Simulated scan of single mutants.
Amino acid sequence: MEIAENAALIVVDVQRGFEEEAYWGPRNNPSADGNIAGLIDAWQADGRPVVFVRHDSAKPDSPLRAGYRGNDFKAYVQERRGRGGGPELLVTKSVNSSFYGTPDLRAWLDAAGVRQIVVAGIQTNMCVETTARMAGNLGYEVFVPLDATYTFDLVGPWGWTLGADELARATAVSLHGGGFAKVVRSAELIAAAA
């Protein structure tokens, strides 16, 4: 695996509102936050670009709604913002894809000549997956460190329920098997970027 000097790390929706278990239900991958922090540290240490994405939910009861404390980044992310030697961008959005936010993520990446991105954050099967799929469709080389993401159990049609681990595996298979992204481990990316 080769990681470009200007490969961008996109940190999706690592917000305090996702800690409200009563709203979201059971989550998977308790080591995700440590892995996300490690990726941010590695990218900032090497002066690579980091994009922080924040979901400003339009739903009035959402823990991610603007003006509510859950909209804030988790402390370990907020502490790292502005500390790297490389370019940094804050994107706000109200949909799943980070490419439909403000400012325009694609324009920023393209202006910097970025062709390779790493997508980490929350939720694996929602905003991380949607951002990775769209990036793949736009022609970027995409890496998704599955261990630097997490999600929650989810109920679908007809009462079908999938656990968070099942959803994460389905996302990994769809992204990797479908050619949208290379699903890897965060340690592999950190080692390749060193």
Rank of each mutant, 00 (worst) to 15 (best):
S94W: 13
A111N: 07
K93F: 13
P49I: 09
G82A: 12
Q44K: 03
L89F: 04
A45M: 03
Q78M: 02
N137G: 08
C127K: 02
C127R: 00
P49W: 08
G136S: 05
G34D: 13
P87D: 10
A66E: 14
V114G: 08
L105G: 13
A120Q: 06
D110Q: 14
P60C: 01
G38Q: 02
G85E: 04
S62K: 07
I117Y: 05
R65N: 02
L39A: 10
W108M: 09
W43H: 06
Q116L: 06
Q123F: 00
V50K: 02
Q116K: 06
M134N: 11
D41Y: 01
S94C: 14
Y100F: 15
A37R: 15
I122Q: 12
D72Q: 15
R81T: 05
D41H: 02
S57A: 15
P63V: 07
A42N: 10
V51Y: 07
G139K: 03
T102V: 14
K93D: 15
G136D: 07
Q116H: 12
G139S: 02
S62R: 09
T92I: 14
R133F: 01
G136R: 03
L89Y: 05
N71P: 00
R81H: 02
A107G: 05
G38T: 05
S98V: 01
V91I: 14
G84A: 06
M126D: 12
V128M: 04
L138H: 07
G85L: 03
D104Y: 07
P103L: 11
D56L: 15
A45F: 05
Y76E: 02
A107H: 14
V50D: 11
E79N: 11
N137K: 03
K74F: 00
Q78F: 00
D56F: 11
L64G: 11
E129V: 00
Y100N: 12
P87Q: 04
G34K: 05
F73C: 00
T131C: 01
R80H: 01
D61C: 08
V128F: 03
E129L: 00
R54V: 04
I40Q: 02
M134A: 07
D104C: 14
G82P: 09
F73G: 00
V118P: 01
Q116T: 07
R69N: 07
A75D: 15
N71R: 09
V91F: 07
V77S: 09
M134V: 15
V128D: 11
L109D: 09
G136I: 01
L109E: 09
E88Q: 15
C127V: 06
L39Y: 10
